[in-house]
Amino acid sequence: MTVLVSISAMVFTILIVIVVLFQLALALGMPWGSYAMGGKFPGKYPPGMRVGAIVQAIVLLAIAAIVLSRSGLFVPSWDWFANKAIWFVVAFSTISTVLNLITRSKWERRIWAPVSVLLLVTSVIVAVG
């Protein structure tokens, strides 16, 4: 893989780790609900949403593993899977970007929309690289 693909995979992973930490903070009761899910749950998440935040964190870590594998930086032997699964990551990133751009939560648009755009761009670079 090229240097651009490797850098993109690392940027993607750093951003995903930030999002994972945010999700885990929500799950642990941080009152940041207005910064997620369109601001539907301002303050602390209710119990069901906390479980959902944990599930989302796990999914995001799996997505990061796909990107890292596709780039050859993590478990390159998964390339048979990652070469196809990377397109799921691109689709996921596209949907995430659209949702973060159209959300009613101004804070979500200001914080997570740029992150989503960067995740989309770096996932596409890794996918086509």
Rank of each mutant, 00 (worst) to 15 (best):
I102P: 04
I102K: 08
K40G: 06
G52Y: 08
L24I: 15
G129M: 05
Y45C: 00
V121S: 05
V51G: 02
M49P: 01
V3H: 07
F12E: 03
W32S: 08
G48K: 12
R50L: 12
L24M: 15
S34G: 12
T94L: 15
W32V: 09
L15N: 07
L28K: 14
V124F: 14
G39Y: 04
V117P: 09
P42D: 11
G39R: 06
S8N: 08
S116Y: 01
S105N: 07
I86N: 09
G33V: 10
A82E: 07
F81N: 01
I7F: 10
I54K: 12
T13G: 06
W78E: 00
S69Y: 06
P46C: 08
S6I: 06
S116V: 00
V75L: 15
Y35I: 03
P114W: 09
G72Y: 07
V19C: 01
V89I: 07
S8L: 07
V3S: 13
P31R: 13
M37V: 09
I7H: 01
V17K: 03
V75C: 01
I86K: 07
G39S: 08
G129I: 07
N83Q: 15
F81M: 04
V98K: 03
I14H: 06
V128E: 02
S93G: 14
V5Y: 01
S93R: 04
T94Q: 01
S96H: 14
K40T: 15
L120W: 13
V11G: 05
V121G: 05
A64F: 03
A91H: 11
V90E: 13
L4D: 00
V11L: 14
E108N: 09
A82L: 00
I111A: 08
Y45H: 10
P31I: 07
I95D: 01
R109S: 03
S71P: 13
I95V: 15
D79C: 00
A36L: 12
V117E: 09
I18Q: 11
R110Y: 10
L60G: 01
A62R: 02
R104V: 00
V51M: 11
L68T: 02
A65C: 13
L26S: 05
P42K: 09
V11I: 15
M30D: 00
A27P: 10
V55M: 10
I102V: 15
A27Y: 09
T94H: 01
L99T: 13
I63V: 15
V55Y: 05
A53Q: 08
P42S: 10
V89N: 07
V89T: 11
S93Q: 11
M30C: 00
L15C: 04
S96W: 11
V75N: 10
P31S: 13
W78M: 11
Y45E: 08
F12V: 00
V90P: 13
I7L: 14
A62G: 15
L99W: 10
K44Q: 14
L101Q: 02
